[in-house]
Nucleic acid binder design. Structure first.
Lengths: 193, 193
DNA sequence: CGTTTGCTTGAATTCTGTCAAAGCAGGTGG
DNA sequence: CCACCTGCTTTGACAGAATTCAAGCAAACG
């Protein structure tokens, strides 16, 4: 249950056996089925979730009612609305289950306590956010200002695993194009080989 | 010289007088003039810069030779290519001075040492990256999948100060549209009032 | 004063979105 | 086991949006 979590934690920071026990005690687990929500718009995001199994995605809904996919989450990734988590303001995001999930989650209060108790846990989070930031910056570089075709090419390069597990219309939304455009791009690409 | 830095540091974490002295000793200062580079493509980004005065912007150049603005930096902000900074791989970004600058910078080795010496300095970075991450996510939400007009409207809402200090063609690049399109949008908007 | 830099404008072209329809699984219940 | 949904993808025709290319203009600069 905790193997994957510690594998990820310890790729950055080492913990003693005792510390691991403490860390474990702060996490709870939860299973969610396809179409269920981990978070709904208007709620306050009280926990960070670590994905053990399955997949989720977060999205916002704009004033015209269009969904915009913000992020996908697969095994080994964290997912949450960080903005709501830190500010305690109601979330503008929805986080929905794509494939039946097993999650470990930690509540804000417990996270704060845990960081006090085990200071280098904070170090892990620092690195985590650093990497998350870098990844987002890459995403921006790989989408903003590019044609639909280029965006898709970039996505293939970086996140091929996604393509097999995520419906195309969500990929399209993630790239900021319509499902129709994505379908046509794929057709073109296929014809060229 | 260090007032602004400590103001920002201490909005998150408090330091003792002694700690402040130590922190100061790890930073060096540098002045740069308009058009100079803080970092050029191909170099390894060895330092994080904190902007005391002036402004900079970072951009990448794609295979067609088009510039894409990734980030602007104003007083009180940090700027660097984090990817290169942490991996020590050559940067794909350029960071150029827009308005004559005064910077405080810290080298990677010193940063690591400083975090060991003053553990809650790491806490500051954690919060910094959290916020940076949230800001980037907002940026994605405010650009991907929206029309040029909507993107610009979002930018005005969030970063009005930028508009007065940054040339329009850089704003356009930041939004992922052409300068011509931006010009036309502004004209339209002006006509409506 | 001439040069550079940035902004605007217009016309033609290309790309992308919209709308509507049809095809194609996979899943469900009869 | 088949018929029927339902959700997702594909296709086509068209309208609208954004880019490209070219030219002109104004302010800033050496």
């Amino acid at each position: 249950m905790f193997e994957l979590l510690f594998e990820r934690l310890e790729s950055q920071v080492k913990f003693s056996e005792e510390e691991r026990k403490i860390i474990q005690s702060y996490f709870k687990s939860k299973k969610l089925k396809r179409k269920q929500f981990f978070l709904q718009e208007g709620e306050i995001c009280n926990c960070l979730a670590f994905i053990i199994k399955g997949s989720l995605y977060s999205y916002s809904i704009d004033s015209k009612g269009t969904e915009h996919v913000i992020q996908f989450g697969l095994e080994g990734w964290w997912i949450a609305d960080l903005y709501s988590f830190f500010t305690k303001e109601p979330s503008t995001l929805n986080i929905e289950v794509l494939e039946d999930c097993e999650l470990l989650f930690i509540e804000k209060i417990n996270q704060d306590e845990l960081m006090k108790k085990i200071p280098h846990f904070e170090g892990y989070y620092r690195v985590l956010y650093q990497n998350a930031y870098i990844a987002l910056q890459k995403r921006i570089g790989g989408t903003i200002g590019l044609s639909a075709e280029e965006k898709y090419a970039n996505l293939i390069e970086q996140y091929t695993p996604l393509l097999n597990r995520v419906p195309q219309h969500l990929i399209a939304s993630y790239l900021g194009i319509t499902p129709e455009t994505l379908s046509r791009i794929r057709k073109q690409a296929a014809e060229q080989h």
